[in-house]
Design a protein around this nucleic acid. Structure first.
Length: 517
RNA sequence: GGGCCGGUAGCUCAAUGGUAGAGCAGCUGACUCUUAAUCAGCGGGUUGCAGGUUCGAGCCCUGCCCGGCUCACCA
């Protein structure tokens, strides 16, 4: 089993045997603690040495040894537990001969428990006066360097446990992520929603346009797809009378990996009967402002070089966004009416592309013959999407690219759909749900006819059947939890907010053969 | 998939084409209030992999592997 570094691994195994030779169980089954390092710091951070001496507060603390200073017949160490540190002071004539022998055998990284009382050192650091040490578990491998920590990003992702030990900031990101999810649950629970779980394995991939992962169930001899979205199942539940439902779970999309994409990512999706997209847009403004405030303490959140104010959303229709962010150098900006007119989006996109190709800007690349709506979406992505830095609600999406959304009553070329953009990233996508089965069937048929890797190959007839039983008017939305966490933790990459992001496997290495990569 | 950048001791990093180094970690010893503890000494390397150029390659060239950024892709 030896791992690198061999010499230290073997040295630590030797110490493990010496600890066992003291008559101790090297891997005991439990330790009864009374306090964590963090609790002690908050509770007694202000207590003076005299106070502590008068009360002799008894404590039992556990943690990992992250620093160790041995001085003959006494020594100091810092224990790290639950992300915080507490110093312990071990004296031979207090901890006893055998206790001190154990202390001398400890390595950085070992897990121990300590019984003693609180006091302050000469330099006034809150510490535990160790009366007894309990060995809890051995670290056979050394910790990353104590001062610089672990900076190698590949190792931080592959061996996240080391990153979490060595880098407090990394730990904080994942604590914040958990708090965000807690707050979201609170928000929706308080509004009468119930949380549900729908299938992760779908016989037909649906609810989004994306390439799915495929798998197979042996007993049923059935091909299944990891879900690309829970949408169609959640809406079936609104048919069933769950008027307010949400689900927080993973989606899987077999597509590229980038700083904003991981093959599996976490989505909050929710549906609210009897509301429309306008209600949802209003609710989102409250939700994001509340969330920013409870997570970061302010509605203004620093992200990289910019301040994002979640207390003030901008609202733009997709057509308005194209007009607003039209580059001056590309000539006169199109008028809204032009973008709404038949053939207008294509003509505008072609005009934009002439400029973009000359100036090296991203251009609206067409894949075959496109409809007006597709041109509009493409043009928006090419020229406006990354300009939406401040929190923005973009609404009125072309019907052609919104197969599950309800059309606007006075303009069927667009739907009652919106997306939330922050820092140039798509964070959320919601709309008034299309609940007319006949129109839904028409849209599905159009998708199947269009073809392509990301389009459904078959119509989900059970979904149509569910709509035929009557789905209430409803609005629904998905919020990307990973990207949301990026914003609230100032993380530039989605890999920084996913504990174990997808990477290529390490080069095959078998420790039993002693060959190490 | 394209472009750019990177991979040197367990970790963090050095090293004009000319003997592969430092700090931390480790080992031995000293030390009963240290905190990047200190002091004295010691060990540690197939420089990602495989070729090539050269008297000589960590450094130059080619291919490959892994990672990062970016573009494309991903409504």
């Amino acid at each position: 089993m030896p791992f690198e570094p061999r010499d230290q691994f073997e040295q630590r195994q030797k110490k493990l045997q010496q600890i066992q030779a003291l008559g101790l169980n090297a891997y005991p089954h439990e330790f009864r603690w009374t306090d964590t390092a963090g609790e002690l710091a908050t509770q007694f951070g202000a207590s003076s040495g005299a106070d502590l001496e008068a009360n002799r507060r008894k404590v039992r603390v556990a943690g990992r040894i992250v620093s160790l200073r041995l001085m003959g017949k006494a020594g100091f160490a810092h224990l790290q537990g639950a992300g915080k540190r507490i110093q312990i002071y071990v004296k031979k004539d207090v901890a006893g001969g055998r206790g001190f022998e154990l202390f001398q055998l400890l390595d950085l990284g070992d897990l121990i428990g300590v019984r003693g009382h609180l006091f302050r050192t000469k330099t006034n650091e809150l510490s535990v006066w160790a009366e007894e040490i309990y060995f809890l578990s051995k670290a056979l491998l050394p910790l990353p360097e104590k001062w610089h920590g672990l900076t190698d990003v590949e190792m931080r992702y592959r061996q996240r446990y080391l990153d979490l030990i060595a880098n407090e900031k990394s730990r904080d990101v994942f604590v914040t992520r958990a708090r965000i999810i807690q707050e979201l649950r609170r928000f929706f629970d308080a509004r009468g929603y119930i949380e549900v779980e729908t299938p992760m394995m779908h016989p037909l991939p649906g609810g989004a346009a994306a390439r799915p992962f495929k798998t197979h169930h042996n007993t049923l001899d059935l091909d299944l797809y990891l879900r690309i979205a829970p949408e169609l199942y959640l809406k079936r539940l609104t048919v069933g009378g769950f008027d307010r439902v949400y689900e927080i779970n993973r989606n899987f999309r077999n597509e590229g990996i980038s700083t904003q994409h991981n093959p599996e990512f976490t989505m909050l999706e929710f549906y609210e009967a009897y509301s429309n997209y306008g209600d949802l847009m209003d609710m989102n403004e409250r939700l994001f402002a509340d969330l920013a405030k409870s997570i970061t303490g302010s509605t203004v959140v620093r992200y990289g070089e910019v301040d994002l104010d979640f207390g003030r959303f901008e609202r733009l229709t997709m057509r308005e966004a194209i007009v607003k962010h039209w580059p001056d150098a590309a000539g006169a900006a199109p008028r809204i009416a032009e973008l709404a007119a038949p053939g207008g989006p294509r003509a505008t996109a072609e005009r934009y592309n002439v400029w973009a190709k000359n100036s090296g800007a991203p251009y609206a690349a067409s894949k075959g013959r496109l409809s007006d709506g597709e041109w509009t979406g493409l043009l928006f992505e090419a020229m406006a999407e990354d300009k939406l830095v401040r929190p923005t609600i973009l609404y009125e999406f072309p019907t052609d690219i919104s197969p599950l959304s309800k059309q606007k009553a006075d303009d069927p070329s667009v739907t009652e759909r919106f997306e939330i953009y922050v820092a140039g990233m798509e964070i959320a996508n919601g709309f008034s749900e299309l609940n007319d089965p006949i129109e839904q069937e028409r849209r599905f048929r159009a998708q199947v006819a269009q073809g392509g890797d990301e389009m459904p190959k078959q119509i989900d007839w059970d979904y149509i059947r569910a709509l035929c039983h009557g789905m209430p008017p409803a609005a629904g939305e998905g919020i990307g939890i990973d990207r949301l966490t990026m914003l609230f933790t100032d993380s530039p990459s989605i890999r920084d907010v996913i504990l174990f992001p997808q990477l290529r496997p390490e080069a095959p290495s078998n420790p039993e053969q002693g060959s190490n990569p």
